[in-house]
């Protein structure tokens, strides 16, 4: 049995007066460890004073503006390129 750790999105407040900004993602078994890993990874040069972590699966994204032809298809098919669907183990390709 090897269980994969879920993906978390990391938001960092770089200093007082600024809002939290998306810094990247990481893997962690749970929220507590995600916070700690985020501290180590995204603030090891004092880049932040506060961190949020959110399970990537919990993020609901809007579709970009449908009037822009470049973005039209993602409104049409929101499921086309998302990162976070579950598929059975063993199914893999790029």
């Amino acid at each position: 049995m090897t269980q994969n750790w879920p993906l978390w999105e990391v938001f960092v407040r770089s200093r007082r007066g600024l809002s939290h900004t998306h810094a990247g993602s990481l893997h962690a078994p749970d929220a507590e460890m995600a916070l700690r890993n985020a501290r180590d990874l995204y603030t090891r040069r004092n880049e932040g004073i506060s961190i949020w972590v959110v399970p990537s699966t919990e993020i609901t994204a809007s579709s970009p503006d449908e009037r822009d032809p470049f973005f039209a298809p993602s409104a049409d098919k929101p499921y086309r390129h998302p990162t976070f669907y579950d598929i059975p183990e063993g199914v893999s390709h790029l």
Binding site: L26, H27, A28, M33, N37, D40, L41
Partner: peptide, 11 residues
Amino acid sequence: PVLEEEVALAN
């Protein structure tokens, strides 16, 4: 055991 822990142990 995992990349995140490389960073933690080094810290």
